[in-house]
C-alpha cells in the first residue's frame, strides 16, 4: 500500500474535502492504484536533468507599470454567494 486510510484523511483535510466512510474506502483504493502506476517514474534516471517549469523557453513577461481598466467592485462581487456593500460575507473567523 502506498497510502493509508489516515494519510488519505490528512490529505482530504489539506484539500478541504470530506468523504463518507464508503467514499473513503473507494478513494483510498483508487489513489493506491494511481500512485502504484505513477511509481514507475522511480525507474527513470533523471538526476541532473533540469525540471520543466514552462514548455517553451521564454523570458519573464514584463509590462509597463501603468493603470488600466479593471472590473468595478460591483462586477467583481456580482457572483458572491453572500455580500454586504462592497465586501464578501464569510462566517465569523475569530
Amino acid at each position: 500500500m502506498k497510502i493509508t486510510h489516515s494519510e488519505v484523511e490528512h490529505v482530504a483535510d489539506l484539500a478541504r474535502l470530506t468523504f463518507s466512510p464508503e467514499e473513503m474506502d473507494s478513494i483510498t483504493g483508487q489513489l493506491n492504484d494511481i500512485l502504484t502506476y505513477v511509481a514507475q517514474l522511480e525507474k527513470v534516471e533523471a538526476s541532473g536533468v533540469e525540471p520543466t517549469t514552462h514548455a517553451l523557453e521564454v523570458e519573464n513577461a514584463f509590462r509597463e507599470d501603468e493603470t488600466g481598466k479593471s472590473l468595478s467592485a460591483d462586477e467583481a462581487l456580482s457572483n458572491a454567494p453572500e455580500r454586504e456593500d462592497d465586501t464578501f460575507v464569510v462566517p465569523r473567523i475569530i
Binding site: V11, L31, V49
Partner: peptide, 28 residues
C-alpha cells in the same frame, strides 16, 4: 475530487521532490 486528492498528496510536505519535481524532470 480524485484529482485534487492526487495533486494535494503529490505536493504535500515531504512528497514534492519525489512526485512533482521528478515528473517535471521526466517531462524534460
Amino acid at each position: 475530487k480524485r484529482r485534487i486528492m492526487i495533486g494535494t498528496y503529490a505536493l504535500s510536505a515531504g512528497y514534492y521532490d519525489a512526485y512533482y519535481k521528478k515528473a517535471s524532470r521526466v517531462r524534460t
